[in-house]
Design a protein around this nucleic acid. Structure first.
Lengths: 131, 131
DNA sequence: TATACAATCTCCAGTTACTGGAGGATCAAG
DNA sequence: CTTGATCCTCCAGTAACTGGAGATTGTATA
């Protein structure tokens, strides 16, 4: 299949597929006579793997590592497990941060009665020293 | 005061202070004879305002708008309120997304018994079609 | 006074992970 | 034979900084 199809099949933009090839997540696809990239079913799975990992928030470099493990079936998956655990921790930290932001934002919004900027709780809250 | 001091006072990097000036969040600071930037107390407050807003996740362009409201005391603060509400919604969406990721990651990690890649639940989970 | 060291200055390049577009070739259908 | 959809390569832009090179300037100490 050509690039458009593999892109559609995985919910990826065509440009992004080419980008993944460029940075080495996908091996350079063989080309047709006229130079178009040709993909096989296995490539769909690889790309889907990448997309799922990215969707879970793994960085491209982490995806690279996960692919390495995946490509070496006999390899101990400890690296993958470590990656996943660390990533989980990062995600949980982000959640906490965002929840703190949320609380502050709710507080700010509540303090706004819709007057002028001078007595606006949002502006005031951002300006106050004890934020 | 010079740039190092205002940076320290607000927990900002020196380079970042200069960057904020460059993109117009801070007005160009007056200079000493030798060309060093000189700041006043009001600048500390402005920079602190910026940092707090950024810390709450507002984009630079949103901060710009918030500063505009803040700079025009007679202005209706409705714009600020709208910004804050929209941002709050975005934050909540992000939290939900991250919580979904978290659940999936927990599921993945649980599926890993530490064998080889072939039977690793992490790799397998990322590879499976029904992810 | 000499000198060392900290702080500042102005560029400029790099980061992350794509995204979009220009300009041009190729392909299938009518 | 022309149209419209795909494809190609190359390149610039995004967000918000961050870090570094190379050159001054300011200050403290020997």
């Amino acid at each position: 299949m050509q690039i458009g199809k593999i892109a559609r099949a995985t919910g990826t933009k065509v440009n992004t597929v080419r980008y993944y090839e460029e940075i080495g997540l996908l091996k350079p696809a063989p080309r047709s006579q006229s130079g178009r990239r040709i993909y096989a079913d296995a490539d769909v799975e690889r790309l889907a793997f990448i997309r799922r990992a990215r969707g879970l928030g793994f960085s491209v470099s982490e995806v690279r590592s996960l692919l390495e493990v995946s490509d070496a079936p006999n390899r101990d998956c400890a690296d993958a497990a470590t990656l996943a655990r660390n990533h989980l921790r990062r995600v949980e930290e982000q959640i906490e941060q965002l929840q703190a932001m949320r609380q502050e934002l709710i507080g700010l919004a509540r303090a706004c009665d819709g007057g002028t900027a001078t007595d606006c709780g949002i502006i005031g809250g951002l300006a106050r020293k004890s934020a």
